Amino acid sequence: MTLQDQLNHKFESGLLFKRGLSAAGIAILIASVLIMIFGNEGNLVWIALTTTAIAGFGAGIFYYLLNDFLQPNGLKNVLAKIFSLLVFAASFWLALIFALAQVGLWD
């Protein structure tokens, strides 16, 4: 692939939105399970779910940009997926801590 082909690569908005929504759904699922197990369900829990969903959506977009847009092959593909998973975990964790600290559930 030449440099000109890489510059003319178009974003697939449907796939971008699909990756973002699937990562946001996974983030909401994990956050709701963690809150049900360790927290108390109050009326401010939606703040934590919304914040983690936004972080998950951003991580899904990052995954699309890294894996689908750059199109790595072989070992680069595996490393891109592992790095995307680490970005998802870090953004999810930071968003969850931020949201729980704002509502007073994180000390």
Rank of each mutant, 00 (worst) to 15 (best):
M1C: 12
T2R: 14
Q6G: 11
Q6E: 15
Q6R: 15
L7Q: 15
G14Q: 09
L15P: 04
K18G: 08
R19I: 02
R19Q: 07
G20M: 14
G20H: 01
A23V: 10
A24Y: 11
I26V: 15
I26R: 01
A27R: 02
L29K: 06
A31G: 07
A31F: 01
L34F: 15
I37L: 14
I37W: 13
N40A: 08
N40P: 03
L44A: 13
V45L: 08
V45C: 06
W46L: 08
L49K: 05
T50K: 06
T52A: 04
I54P: 00
I54M: 03
F57Q: 05
A59D: 03
G60H: 01
G60P: 02
F62E: 06
F62Y: 14
Y63Q: 06
Y63R: 04
Y64M: 02
L65M: 14
L65D: 04
D68P: 06
D68M: 08
F69S: 02
L70F: 08
L70N: 10
Q71S: 15
N73L: 09
G74S: 12
L75I: 11
N77H: 13
V78I: 15
K81V: 02
I82P: 04
F83A: 15
F83L: 15
S84G: 14
V87R: 03
A90T: 15
S91R: 01
L96A: 15
I97G: 11
F98D: 13
A101W: 13
Q102W: 13
Q102C: 09
W106K: 11
D107A: 14
